[in-house]
Measured scan of single mutants.
Amino acid sequence: SRSVIRSIIKSSKLNIDHKDYLLDLLNDVKGSKDLKEFHKMLTAILA
C-alpha cells in the first residue's frame, strides 16, 4: 500500500533529497497498477 511504500522510503539509507524526491513522486502516482510499478522501481533502487 501507499503507506507501506512511504515507510520504506523514510526508513531507507538514501539521503534526504532523494527521499523527498521519491515521496513527491509517490504523491503523483495514481492507480494500483502505477503503485505496483513504483514499488518495483523502489525495490530496484534500494537493492
Rank of each mutant, 00 (worst) to 15 (best):
I8Q: 06
V4E: 11
K33C: 04
L35H: 02
I9P: 01
L22R: 00
D34P: 08
S3C: 09
S32I: 12
K33Q: 08
K19R: 05
D28H: 10
L25M: 12
L22S: 00
A44H: 08
K30H: 11
I9N: 00
R6N: 04
H39I: 13
S32N: 09
A44N: 10
E37F: 11
K33R: 08
D28W: 08
S1E: 11
K33A: 11
L14A: 02
D17N: 10
L46M: 07
S11K: 12
H39C: 10
L25T: 04
N27D: 07
L25Y: 04
K10A: 14
K33L: 07
T43V: 12
K40Q: 09
L26S: 01
I9T: 01
N27E: 06
A44E: 07
V29W: 04
R2H: 08
D28F: 11
L25K: 10
K36E: 12
K13P: 09
L23G: 01
L25W: 07
K30P: 03
A44W: 12
L25R: 07
F38V: 02
F38D: 00
D20P: 01
M41A: 05
K13W: 11
V29N: 02
E37N: 12
K40A: 09
D28Q: 14
S32V: 09
S11C: 06
A47M: 11
D34G: 15
K13Y: 06
L42H: 00
I16L: 10
K10G: 05
D28E: 13
S3V: 09
L22Y: 04
K36N: 08
H18D: 10
T43A: 10
H18Y: 12
L35E: 03
K40V: 08
S7I: 07
L14T: 02
K13I: 10
S3H: 11
R2Q: 05
M41T: 06
V29I: 12
H18C: 12
S7Q: 12
D17H: 13
S11Y: 11
I5E: 02
I5W: 04
S12P: 01
A44G: 09
M41F: 10
K36M: 13
I9E: 00
N27F: 05
V4Y: 14
S32G: 11
A47W: 08
D24V: 12
S7N: 12
K19A: 04
K40Y: 06
F38Y: 04
M41G: 03
K36C: 06
S3P: 05
K40G: 05
